[in-house]
């Protein structure tokens, strides 16, 4: 869907957004929301990082096959989140993001992670947490893609990474909760929210590792074959 038809205007906008708009939003926002500067900052930075990645993704030349594969993995992760909702705290989004990122690269990993959060929240409910969730899952995918050469074909390393991503995801989400409620890092509250989330975090981390353990082989076989056969 092409909203802005003018080619020149599009180019100007795609440079204007990262270099002018982003600093302006961050600095202007902090000046306005002085009493809640931290929570604003963390919200703005996560939302704008996603914007930056989307702009970069648009400018680069991506093959059609790669583009459709990214869409398919986003859908797979979102459908999986719905399908596994019978076990609380279990969802395959992290595992799919990591495994796909290892074979498709960091940028595709970021897009898969971030868009899975957006799409599955259309079904599960959008909220203030959406940009932050997109950011967290996107980063998990980005790092899996950057360090792909240490992960490819290494099942145990992948499982350990997935396990720590599960813990990291929960810890980061609680930092967000704490900053959002207090706008300062209130340690007792943070510890209390971590403690209350321990069963959830444990299930999540272990299930991530289990997903990766069971899916690493099918993923490497199928994606490896596709890469070899079609040269993606």
């Amino acid at each position: 869907m092409r909203v802005i038809q003018n080619e020149k205007l599009r180019t100007v906008l795609s440079y204007l957004i990262p270099f002018v708009l982003i600093p302006a939003v961050v600095i202007g926002g902090i000046a306005v929301f002085r009493s809640r500067g931290y929570s604003y900052l963390i919200f703005a930075v996560s939302a704008l990082t996603i914007l930056l990645f989307v702009c970069g993704f648009d400018r680069r030349k991506t093959g059609t096959r790669r583009l459709v594969l990214v869409a398919a993995f986003v859908a797979l992760a979102s459908a999986g989140r719905a399908a596994f909702s019978f076990i609380p705290g279990v969802n395959p989004v992290t595992a799919v993001t990591i495994l796909a990122a290892v074979y498709l690269g960091g940028e595709a990993g970021f897009m898969i992670g971030a868009f899975s959060a957006l799409v599955s929240n259309i079904f599960a409910g959008q909220g203030v947490w959406t940009p932050f969730q997109m950011f967290a899952w996107g980063m998990i995918g980005l790092f899996a893609g950057i360090f792909a050469k240490y992960f490819e074909g290494r099942k145990l390393r992948l499982c350990v990474y997935a396990f720590f991503c599960g813990i990291f995801y929960s810890l980061i989400m609680d930092v967000w909760t704490t900053l959002w409620t207090y706008d300062a890092f209130n340690l007792p509250f943070y510890l209390a929210s971590i403690t209350s989330a321990v069963p959830y975090t444990a299930v999540y981390a272990v299930s991530n590792a289990a997903f990766v353990w069971l899916m690493a082989k099918p993923f490497s076989e199928k994606l490896g074959r596709i890469k070899l056969k079609y040269g993606i």
Binding site: R2, V3, D58, A71, A72, S78, A79, M111, L118, V119
Partner: peptide
């Protein structure tokens, strides 16, 4: 689509794929 046509395309396709899958 204002920000990125490609991202809008990915989102369109993903939304169509979810019920299909």
């Amino acid at each position: 689509g204002f920000i990125s046509q490609k991202a809008a395309l990915v989102l369109t396709m993903a939304l169509r794929f979810v019920p299909l899958y």
